[in-house]
Simulated assay, not measured.
Amino acid sequence: METPSELHPISTPQIDTLILDALTRYIAQSGAQPGSRLPPERVLAEKLGVSRNTVREALKRWEALGIILRKKGSGTFLQVDVGINDSFLSLRFKNDSANMLHALEVRRVIESECCVLAAQRATAEDLARIEQCLDEVERVHLSVGTAGAEDWAFHSSIYRAAGNPLLLQMLNGIYDSLHAFFESPPEQALFADSLPLHRELFNAIYQRDSKAARAICNQILDITERDMKDVINAKR
Rank of each mutant, 00 (worst) to 15 (best):
F77Q: 08
F154Q: 02
I232A: 03
S87T: 02
A189Y: 06
R92Y: 00
H179Q: 11
I84Y: 10
A64H: 08
N218K: 04
L65D: 07
Y159W: 07
R208M: 03
F77K: 07
S87H: 03
N53K: 05
A58I: 01
I223D: 01
P9N: 06
D193H: 08
D16T: 04
P39T: 12
E200S: 02
Q79V: 10
N95M: 12
D151M: 02
L195W: 13
T17Y: 05
A119K: 04
Q188P: 08
N218L: 05
E57G: 08
I158C: 07
Y206H: 11
A234H: 06
W62D: 15
Y206N: 05
L221I: 01
Y26E: 11
S143D: 13
C115W: 00
R121Q: 02
V109G: 09
R107Y: 01
Q219E: 04
F88E: 13
L91W: 00
E2A: 14
E187T: 06
S157H: 14
P4S: 13
L178A: 06
S90A: 13
E113P: 01
K94L: 06
L195M: 04
I130K: 09
N164S: 05
A98R: 12
N172I: 08
C114K: 09
E125N: 14
D230W: 04
H102G: 00
R70F: 04
N95H: 11
T17M: 05
A180H: 05
K235I: 02
L48I: 09
E111K: 00
A180F: 01
L171S: 12
L104E: 01
D209Y: 10
D135R: 15
L89V: 05
P196M: 06
K229F: 05
P40D: 13
P34W: 15
V144S: 03
E63L: 02
K94G: 12
R139Y: 11
I19D: 15
K71N: 13
I174F: 13
W62H: 15
D230R: 01
L167C: 10
N164M: 09
G75I: 04
A204V: 07
A32L: 11
P196S: 07
S36A: 15
A180Y: 06
T12S: 14
N95A: 04
R160S: 05
Q79N: 13
T24K: 09
P34M: 12
F88Y: 05
F182I: 08
Q120E: 04
A32M: 14
T17F: 09
P185F: 02
H155E: 00
T146K: 01
K72G: 06
A192Q: 09
S30N: 10
V43P: 14
K235G: 13
R61F: 03
A32G: 14
H198C: 03
G163F: 07
L101M: 05
R25M: 06
R70Q: 12
D21G: 03
Q29C: 10
S143C: 07
R108F: 00
I220M: 00
G66N: 08
L168I: 07
S112Q: 04
G145T: 03
